[in-house]
């Protein structure tokens, strides 16, 4: 596919944590901040922390995934990149697939790494941590896909896009959260498989929904 590798390299250079463009570290810092502040707010009772910690990690991961949304597609539309790609026959769908991959790579694996110190702060035991990590592995691609779809739908909005995308993501992410965090309760092992299934559906929908939304924004 024409330009796939070139596009991916450009996207990764923009979105990987520590990349030059803006606040790429912010989602990770936000995630860690939640894990650090939660014990202060809830009190140091180890039983309470261990029982609720996994769920907190999930909520923090979801909110961290919302942070970069307003920079995901809008700058490229404003700067005419999508026009130039369209002229060269590079479909919006391809761009969205690449962007989805780069977006996931730049927060999914790093979130899973950050979950290690976070679990220590929250007093989560090894078995639960394993479930959390597996759940994040299954769920973060779905979160990334929701993020891309919402970023594409709100891409034409001049202002207020960030706040609106946050509001739009939350209801869509509820199923992932229910099954992902639900896998932590006893007898909830099937939750991970369901999370993965939801992710799969979202990831396969994202390029088409995103591509159509970007084309609609260009016509406007």
């Amino acid at each position: 596919m024409r330009g796939f590798g070139t596009l991916l390299l450009r996207d990764l250079a923009q979105f990987l944590p520590g990349a030059r463009k803006g606040n790429t570290l912010l989602p990770l810092l936000f995630f860690m901040a939640v894990a650090m502040l939660y014990p202060f707010a809830i009190g140091p009772n180890p039983n309470v922390l261990a029982a609720t910690g996994g769920g907190v990690i999930w909520v923090a991961a979801l909110l961290a995934a919302i942070l970069p949304l307003d920079r995901l597609l809008a700058p490229d539309l404003e700067n005419g990149f999508f026009d130039q790609w369209a002229l060269r026959g590079i479909a919006e769908e391809v761009v969205v697939v690449v962007r989805l991959l780069a977006h996931w790579i730049s927060f999914g694996p790093f979130l899973m790494l950050a979950a290690l110190p976070a679990s220590a702060l929250l007093g989560i035991d090894g078995a639960t941590l394993r479930t959390v990590e597996l759940g994040l592995l299954a769920g973060t691609p779905g979160l990334a896909a929701i993020g891309i779809i919402i970023a594409a739908v709100t891409v034409g909005l001049r202002s207020g896009g960030a706040a609106l995308s946050g509001l739009l993501v939350i209801p869509l992410a509820v199923p992932l959260l229910i099954f992902g965090a639900g896998s932590l309760s006893t007898g909830g092992e099937g939750g991970i498989a369901l999370t993965a299934a939801i992710s799969l559906v979202l990831v396969s929908m994202a390029p088409f929904a995103g591509g159509a939304a970007i084309r609609a924004a260009r016509e406007g």
Partner: peptide
């Protein structure tokens, strides 16, 4: 047109290199 389609934060050489590879 009025849009440049060049990455604002990159040095010009590298911003153009992206299109060099695409085209």
């Amino acid at each position: 047109d009025q849009t440049m389609a060049l990455d604002e934060h990159l040095p010009l050489g590298r911003a153009l290199a992206f299109w060099r590879r695409i085209d």
